[in-house]
Write a protein that binds this DNA or RNA. Structure first.
Lengths: 182, 182
DNA sequence: CGACACATGTAACACGTTACATGATTTG
DNA sequence: CAAATCATGTAACGTGTTACATGTGTCG
């Protein structure tokens, strides 16, 4: 529930209106998540319906701006969201899923998948490192960039583990589910 | 698009029916993703509509089983899915999002979030390691478990980076958006 | 004036989850 | 027979995306 909970965080300091929330969401994710403004309004409606935010009139400076403020339940939910760790995605992760679904029945192809994924990720990692060196280092961009790099490094480590553990050719079934190279 | 693409992978070797796809999906994700069977049928409908699978009559052994087979487009799509790396989730990641949204306006609270998250993840990591030692080590469970551990370790490393980079108290704004402890 | 940012919204869709309905077949 | 498994499906909902409609305000 990223967007609803994210909006609640943005509402912590003061009442805000939809358009403002959309732009701030983008700013505060270092531009990595540009919410469509439409989604903000529907999400605010649901949050209001469920009692997590409350309409708070309009901005005195601009009557078009319909303000929302956090309710007590909203504040509690937000605090919970910030303090509790997200559920472990485990096999839901796209990379893991790709390897796992193939690994069970066709270790040979699984190795091809692992290799292909590694090639992509190595390339991506180089790009990211290069960007990191050139880019200006304001906090948000820096943290987001670190997250990307750390994540890709972890993925590469996991791919190495996969290669270690996947049985080698002789034990694999005769007909690989994918013949061609990847 | 995990489920649709996952189903296409399962259909690589031979035509299968919905119920079978649902159970195999669970098996081949080491039980970490139990698809509701209902979802399989609606997804198969969409895949058929879009030309990625084709109805292939019923199983001679059991007329109830409505078989689907991969089309050429489906095979191509599947191959693409296996060989291309998933998009970088970056700030979409729940953990990253939580820290980022707070970091911009309130470094002090951001530190609290980082600490809270770390406590949860350290505990989870211990649990995972313990399970790893006890659990039987068939390939799928092993790979899935490795993925979980690797991922949590990476998250912890990133949290350390955050703590390094977050400005310390003096520079932070006067009123933290969250007063209490987390 | 015309273009662009501001501001609120609707529509349509894909994806994912939970819950439920409806039967046939197998098995204790 | 009763219960569990097999098998196909529908309904309702939340979440997220893209695209569009509709106005107001501002600025060159």
């Amino acid at each position: 529930m990223s967007v609803p909970d994210g909006l609640l965080v943005l509402l912590q300091d003061e009442p805000k209106h939809g358009y403002q929330l959309a732009t701030e969401f983008a700013e505060r994710t270092a531009g990595r998540w540009n919410l469509n403004t439409g989604q903000v309004y529907t999400t605010l409606d649901r949050l209001a319906r469920d009692g997590f935010v409350e309409a708070d009139g309009t901005d005195p400076a601009d009557a078009r701006r319909r303000l929302y403020r956090l309710s007590d339940e909203g504040r509690a939910r937000s605090r919970r969201w910030l303090s509790e760790a997200p559920e472990a995605p485990a096999a839901r992760d796209e990379l893991v899923l790709r390897v796992l679904l193939v690994a069970a029945v066709d270790p040979h192809t699984a190795r091809l998948v692992v290799d292909a994924q590694r090639r992509q990720l190595v390339a991506r990692l180089q790009l990211m490192r290069r960007e990191q060196r050139t880019a200006g280092a304001d906090l948000l961009h820096r943290l987001a960039s670190d997250a990307g790099v750390t994540r890709v490094e972890a993925d590469l480590r996991w791919l190495d583990l996969c290669e270690e553990r996947l049985p080698t050719d002789p034990t694999s079934r005769t007909r690989p589910i994918i013949q061609e190279d990847l």
